[in-house]
Design a protein around this nucleic acid. Structure first.
Lengths: 203, 203, 203, 203
DNA sequence: GATGAATGAGCATTCATTCAT
DNA sequence: CATGAATGAATGCTCATTCAT
């Protein structure tokens, strides 16, 4: 008769057992991405996502316990993609090359679907979603690379956080302005990143 | 009657001619700031703002044509405050000193009310509000200062945009992490800014 | 963006300040009674109540924080009516007369709107509503009267509870069977009540 | 597809011919009992019952045409159990002993699983289920016993109904209050029952 | 038969906005 | 001008039921 409150989990409700549902889940997540891109947070609602995915609202809720779970799933999908690409940086010989690769990966990731990337960055900051999205891996990766690129930096953790902030800030703004020239943007980001490192205690 | 109007003016409905209305308008704007800070976009609604301001919802609509107008007014208020402080940079002798002052102003502004600043940065990016908020002045100011600090820079417009992005990116992230040490943060932002300039074509 | 859980209060949201709203509140409560009577718990929903009351769903929620609050308000209304009538029993000279009056009041109350009375009895038992409905007054009243009618009863509290149960049981069942003869029903309830008292330790 | 069917048969869809289905049906009915006990009507839904029974929702619908059929089956199960016990009363020598046995059976039945018994009493009253549950047998049994215990009672049918109401009323209320002392409760019920009979025309 | 993915009508609730007082 | 009662479109979410596999 009344609404059960309860603490909302953001994990998918069931692991899709059959391949039919795997496809459903993927299509819902992609639909969420598209709705977010085209309508923003304003127009991002579960009915719209279900419609765009071509499934019923009931199916959506079969796999996602609520609206926010869609965002979380989307963040995880994009993070995983980015992490996969970014990990290649670890195979680079020099720290500088690794950092350069990381910057390239960031730029590619962010300008691939700029609006989506920007909105997800915002969503990641929402208090309700904190902790749901594991940023640990990313941070560790960047820290490792910074450690290699600037071994004598006094505070690699802070440096890693700053670098991420610089890259995201520049690339988001570029995306917002509609920039498309990846190479030029990458050059400028490198200037900021290496400039920061050399002046804040790095090599 | 319905919830989705189509096109809205965001300017206050009437120029507050008498001081009583001026005070009312100001109290509504500050209430909007507080609600936004404490409840986020989630809990930001006109009734809550009116309640916090101690005015009736009817009065709120007397002065603001709609919800978004509150955000716009808030952005304008904060921008004006920032611009006023930042303008002092123009009185500095050297370009370097001017740029340093600008960075300091940014850090101060952002860490004064970090949550509010961050949320307004997000709101500024909303397509619906673009153009309502004049960023021209700010851009021009930064451009002027960059021009003085890095006179030989090949593309001062882009540099200005990048610098703003760097500063906002770093300072927002710092605010999000709860950093409070203004001086240390300022030092790191300078490293990024001057590092960027020196490596992207400046002095 | 997400649903705020929070502990639901069942008290009306605002004390109706103007007489306009007093009428609205009363019409909503009576509409709730009618919907409950004619549709049962199955068909008891906020939209139906608002429609029957001739108000918008928004108005309903302006005065009642949720569906259950309607039921609570209804229980309170009926309890108050009953209590007012039943209190007259205290003015009776003899304990016997007082108890007889109480029985009469119960029968009248229950057969006035039998379906409604029965459904509210059920609702009162719902764990979620326990404690929201103060039964203390009623219990105290019955205990007082039992104390006067059977002064030597070893356990007046239990006796009061049993009497209430006997009366409600018999009268509900009668209402369910469609009985309308108040006098005959009253006679039988008296038989049970006084029979119980005389055999369980009373006078 | 939709949620509100119009007219439904409440009998199990197939007579469970093989013992495997018999076991399945029984486990579903017991699961229904447990869900009802622990979640109340609020949380009583077909998916929960199927889950608790360890069968798929599809299988549940194989054996029961709908949600209400589960309740009906449950009522029938409990009624049969009670009837079986209560029938023993007919073997008693005296009418008084028979009636006492009947009361004992009622108390036992009701306090065995008090929440379940109470909820089923409520369900039995739902107009939609009336007639689906044969109360005739029970009534006849009680009538017979009343006829023997109070042979000169002017209206044995009404007396039987009243006695049932008294017993159910008292025992339900006791269960609701959490009473566990069967003997004391039985004593008080006897007081009410025999008191009623002696004062309403019986022996 | 059994399974569980899919469906969608239905319901609770919120909130921007209007307008009679 | 101020008030706050009233409105109702919009949205999150549930759950009985069906049916392809």
């Amino acid at each position: 008769m009344s609404q059960r409150p309860s603490h909302k989990p953001y994990r998918p409700r069931k692991a899709p057992a059959q391949s039919r549902s795997e496809a459903t889940v993927a299509s819902i997540v992609e639909a969420a991405a598209q709705v977010l891109e085209s309508e923003g947070f304003e127009g991002f609602n579960t009915n719209a996502v279900a419609r765009r995915a071509g499934v019923s609202i009931g199916s959506l809720y079969q796999y996602f316990p609520g609206k926010d779970a869609l965002i979380v799933a989307l963040i995880r999908r994009e993070s995983a993609r980015f992490y996969e690409d970014a990990s290649v940086a670890l195979t680079k010989r020099s720290g500088k090359a690794a950092l350069e690769y990381l910057i390239g990966a960031s730029v590619r990731q962010q300008l691939q679907r700029p609006m989506l990337a920007r909105l997800l960055d915002i969503a990641e900051g929402r208090p309700a979603l904190r902790g749901e999205v594991a940023k640990g891996e990313m941070d560790a990766l960047v820290e490792t690379i910074v450690g290699r690129a600037a071994p004598r930096h006094p505070n690699p953790e802070v440096a890693a956080a700053d670098l991420l902030a610089i890259v995201k800030g520049m690339v988001d703004a570029a995306g917002e302005r509609g920039e498309r020239d990846l190479d030029d943007l990458e050059r400028r980001v490198r200037a900021a990143v290496f400039g920061y490192l050399s002046r804040s205690g790095g090599a």
